[in-house]
Amino acid sequence: MLSFSRKIDKTAFRALEKHLILAYSTSSEPQREEEFRVLNLKHVKGQTVQRRSVRKAEIQPPRTTQMPVDQDWGNVWPGPRSFHPATVPLPIRQGYTPTGVAPGKYANAELMKIPNFLHLTPPVIKRQCEALKKFCTPWPKALDSDEKCERFFPLEVASSDYCHSSPTIRDPLARIVSVKFKLGVLGLEGRAKDKFLRLVGERYDEQTDIVTIVTDRCPLKKQNYDYAMYLITALYHESLNVEPWEELKSEADMEVYIWENNASKTSIEALFGKEAKEIENVEQYSQAVVRYMNEGENQYTVEQYGDAVRKILNLPPVPR
């Protein structure tokens, strides 16, 4: 009989207990540990090679099996992402097989290749629009018609931004700025308008009365916009300028026939003996002469001219 004093701590007691168990147990476990391993260079048939069993990791079942019916899909798939079959609870198939059904969604690389819009379902778009609403300002109430918009904002500035799938956000085409406005809003008349049109050249569209200025010579959009504004300002003031040599323009330098400046007016005044304004039907006559001189001689202008002459002289019209 052994007796232990209380001062022996628990660890020592346990070690002893273990020793006792080892000494009296009949299992072969401790004996195997002591067995000396033999180095077996040649592969002898009797040699048993212990194959390590591959321990398979426990895999959770697909997430789709645990999804409630009324879940919020926007929280499951919050952003753009490649397709994942365990997250999408849809029985999707993709691929072509000559016979049989198309491959399913698991282990299907084709579904991962194509871009998906699972993050842009209608309720999610609605939610995002609601979130963006507080950054928007209401449309000004005074601008209720297109005519008012055109009147108060006569300039139309257009430029493009480009999105590429590349690490750079720069695109050289983004620098181009085009400015459109109606020539009428500048309020140019006569000589100034003529000068403006000469300066603008083919940037003026006669059908719609719109001037289009495209600037692309500077590297940045801002610079091009500033340059376009500078061009409009310069064009306006330049067309209002009157150079001293412009006063020297004589009848031979005129590019169009103007009835008031010509011999036709003086001769008809001499014929009637009064001012041109007071003569009856002089408007039609002057227009006919202008058309005849500007458009050239053709059947129509000649007939118009003949009619106008007959009218101004109070002659009966030619029966046709």
């Binding site: 990791a57 490649s82 282990a107 690389a109 991962m112 290749k113 799938s165």
Partner: peptide
Amino acid sequence: LSEIIIKRQHNIIRIAGIVRRSVS
């Protein structure tokens, strides 16, 4: 086990593919 799929979206590069579960 599949080809490596490279998708570019703006400046993001997404690399997708099918992988074996042979490592932990």
